[in-house]
Nucleic acid binder design. Structure first.
Lengths: 225, 225
DNA sequence: ATAAATTTAGACACGCTTGTCTAATTCGTC
DNA sequence: GACGAATTAGACAAGCGTGTCTAAATTTAT
């Protein structure tokens, strides 16, 4: 209601700074303690803000949770699709480029603070808010899978890969990427760059052993040996 | 204190039945609502028991959570190692037997009610009880990985597979097994037998494309072509 | 410097949950 | 049928968390 009806100026500077810090603190606390376990006083304290300010910005607790999820979702999706755009469509060195892509995917999307928060929040609260879960699934994993599947299909068409079902290949690629990192992801620990690189290397090596064409260059005509 | 000091009879029949039903209900509610969100009245109601009985059996709420986790962990580990024992050590049809093994693993351990409960409980409460998380990790995933890695190493030694790092192969096998089921697992839905079989087939097919020996039978001498 | 908007600390009512206690009731056994 | 153990319903105090309110202090823009 009292947000800022007309934008003579987008918002007071301290105002939006506090809004941000509230959302960040709330995300941390919701993740750590769960919705019911998170208490507003703690969120306010971690945000360096008074309790009343939290209520001024976001109404009640339920609303705050939704704001947190929307905030993280938006940022997370932006990062995700920016990263997907760097997929190696016309690779010179497929293995190296896929590894680099996998590293980016892990760093920017899956192992990032946002990515982990979002997954844990959805997993904790999804059972109580089915439409929340459905929305996340449709906009997150399902879109990721289908986008990635399209890229892999292209690589198959251009003869770089030999793939029966691109959707399966996409899911397997993502599963392999995380095979070595799942345990760390479950706890608070953030994966080292070295660990991420190693995980990506292992994953891509196996993925390519499975999906690299077995006969040399059965490519579609316009690629000549 | 008032459990049953001497076992003239192990415990009243209704007594242990109620204990079981309390643990089951508590597991459900803790999973659904989180530790703080779970309330004893609800657990008692779902167990078909009075609130006081819950306190009689398990002291306070914290204690009840520990009892639930211990209960599920024990059952879960028993199933896990029973299933691991059915690994195809001397396969005639490696692909078929690995698929069957993967199906058993998913049905008995990963997609089972206990498996899902345990994972969600640990993920929710692990951050607040580090030793809980550590115990689960050491007894669950780490042991699974190492047991599975040993089996794969054996298959590699006998020439059925060509594996650089058996630990990596084991993690990748498990990751592939779940690639198609992760989303369903996150929600309440239980995977169909058909889905589990299909997921296992996809996984094993890819796994074997990656790890089956490329040159025919470079086996260790005693296997003759 | 002044006026408007925002933030703050604190107090407050209200509801819910935990854990205990008691007295009545049911259950299993002899 | 009678006994003891377990279970039950209900009341209860104490603590905590939410959300509201007020009056003072602080920030921001004019």
């Amino acid at each position: 209601m009292k947000e800022n009806p007309f934008p003579h100026f987008p918002a007071a500077r301290g105002h939006s700074a506090k809004r941000t810090s509230i959302l960040e603190a709330a995300a941390r606390v919701f993740c750590r303690e769960g919705f019911t376990g998170a208490n507003i006083d703690l969120i306010a304290a971690e945000a360096g803000v008074s309790r009343q300010t939290v209520y001024n910005h976001h109404g009640d607790k339920e609303n705050l949770l939704l704001a947190v999820i929307k905030d993280i979702t938006d940022r997370s999706n932006a990062g995700l699709f920016a990263t997907l755009a760097t997929f190696p469509d016309q690779p010179k060195d497929l293995e190296a480029e896929l590894i680099a892509f996998a590293v980016r995917l892990n760093q920017n999307c899956i192992c990032s603070k946002d990515g982990k928060f979002l997954r844990k929040l959805i997993e904790s609260e999804g059972e109580r808010n089915p439409e929340l879960f459905a929305g996340w699934r449709d906009e997150g994993p399902l879109k990721t899978w289908s986008a990635l599947a399209a890229r892999f299909a292209r690589l198959a068409y251009s003869g770089h890969l030999e793939i029966d079902d691109p959707d399966v290949a996409a899911r397997q690629f993502l599963a392999l990427i995380n095979a070595d990192l799942q345990l760390q992801a479950m706890f608070g620990e953030i994966a080292t760059d070295e660990q991420i690189r190693s995980a990506a290397t292992n994953a891509v090596r196996t993925f390519l052993r499975a999906y690299r064409p077995r006969v040399e260059k059965p490519a579609p005509a316009h690629v000549s040996a």
